[in-house]
């Protein structure tokens, strides 16, 4: 475990606490894409099924359980508790256009052709693009609450921080994970436009607004 990896995980944890805080304090899931959140549940369950047959560390298992539980809880909040605050008419990204290509990528690119490894690869590709329904929604509304942008920034920073972690691991352990690295670069790339507006507007005290 190096500092980049650890900060990345902390950033991921922080993003979830920020999202929960946003939903609980505003008693609303306005501006949050249900489809993106549902994709994260698929991502975490697909990737962390190895909880049943592989033990890495207490840290690893605890984080996996937290990500599965919190993502399911967020779906519950959105679908049941604060259902009236969710507007499906602006959350329309077709997730099958993400699921199918990710499945194909996983069947082609994996480290071993077995169920668990294909599922792992699928989860890596799907995580890379799972934010698209959310970004699409943001693009449609053209603005976002500050707290929602902090959530997205923390979520984007998580995978961005994994990139120096992979560089570090290459030099210290000789470890290369081409699937995770490729998907991670794609994932971070999808945030670049968002980050630009976040740094030039939100962090300067302005409201997050996209140019019309």
């Amino acid at each position: 475990m190096n500092i980049f990896r650890f900060l990345g995980d902390l950033s991921h944890l922080a993003s979830i606490f920020i999202l929960l805080h946003k939903i609980q304090t505003t008693r609303s899931c306005r501006g949050i894409s249900f489809r993106t959140q549902a994709l994260y549940v698929v991502v975490f369950i697909a990737r962390y099924l190895d909880l049943f047959f592989r033990y890495v560390s207490l840290y690893n298992s605890a984080m996996k359980l937290f990500f599965i539980a919190s993502s399911c809880y967020i779906l519950y909040l959105m679908k049941i508790r604060y259902r009236p605050t969710h507007d499906p008419s602006i959350d329309t990204f077709r997730v099958e256009y993400l699921l199918a290509p990710c499945l194909i990528l996983a069947l082609i690119f994996n480290y071993k052709f077995n169920f668990a490894e294909v599922l792992w690869s699928f989860s890596i590709w799907l995580e890379a693009v799972a934010i698209l329904p959310q970004l699409f929604m943001l693009q449609r509304t053209g603005e976002a609450e500050n707290i929602t942008t902090h959530y997205l920034a923390a979520l984007g920073a998580y995978r961005a921080l994994y990139i120096p972690n992979w560089i570090y691991r290459y030099f210290t352990e000789g470890l290369v994970d081409p699937i995770a690295v490729t998907a991670g670069i794609v994932q971070t790339g999808l945030y670049l436009d968002f980050f630009y507006v976040y740094f030039t507007k939100v962090l300067q005290g302005q409201k997050f607004e996209l140019p019309a």
């Binding site: 990896r5 995980d9 991921h12 190895d50 592989r54 890495v56 560390s57 690893n60 984080m63 996996k64 990500f67 480290y111 071993k112 490894e117 792992w120 994994y162 000789g174 470890l175 290369v176 994970d177 699937i179 995770a180």
Partner: peptide, 10 residues
């Protein structure tokens, strides 16, 4: 790298 090595990441 062997196929197990990447599974220590989240």
């Amino acid at each position: 790298s062997d196929s197990e090595a990447h599974h220590d990441e989240l």
